[in-house]
């Protein structure tokens, strides 16, 4: 059967997701993703020609909040889970 996703594509997606896969994992992921995509093929057996595409399970639109300021987090709480801080900022490896 023709592969739905190639090893090259797996490597590209892994790279975009910042995942570091070794060659064995690349093979394994390619197999697993192809198996999943094959399984999803089953859905194509359903006739959807009369169904509008949707991105939601519920048919709702226009859920809004009013433009009123509410409380923010204390800075200590905001920074609590950061791997590194200077007490004021989140500190990260330098990026340019």
């Amino acid at each position: 059967m023709k592969e739905k996703i190639t090893r090259e594509e797996v490597r590209h997606v892994a790279d975009l997701a910042r995942l570091d896969l070794n060659p064995d994992e690349e093979v394994q992921m390619t197999q697993q993703l192809n198996a999943i995509l094959d399984y999803m093929e089953k859905l194509n057996e359903v006739d959807t020609s009369q169904v509008e595409p949707t991105t939601h399970a519920v048919e709702r639109a226009n859920v809004f909040r009013e433009d009123v300021v509410g409380p923010s987090l204390q800075r200590d709480s905001a920074l609590a889970n950061a791997p590194q801080t200077d007490g004021v900022h989140f500190v990260v490896p330098k990026v340019i």
Binding site: R65, D67, V68, V69, G70, P71, S72, L73, R75, A78, L79, V88, H89, F90
Partner: peptide, 23 residues
């Protein structure tokens, strides 16, 4: 606007760093 696009944190310019954030 007074608040952010998806939460009620203030958009005021010049506040001390990381004091207008929420989950």
């Amino acid at each position: 606007t007074k608040t952010k696009i998806f939460c009620s944190c203030s958009t005021e310019f010049g506040a001390p760093p990381n004091t207008h954030t929420c989950p």
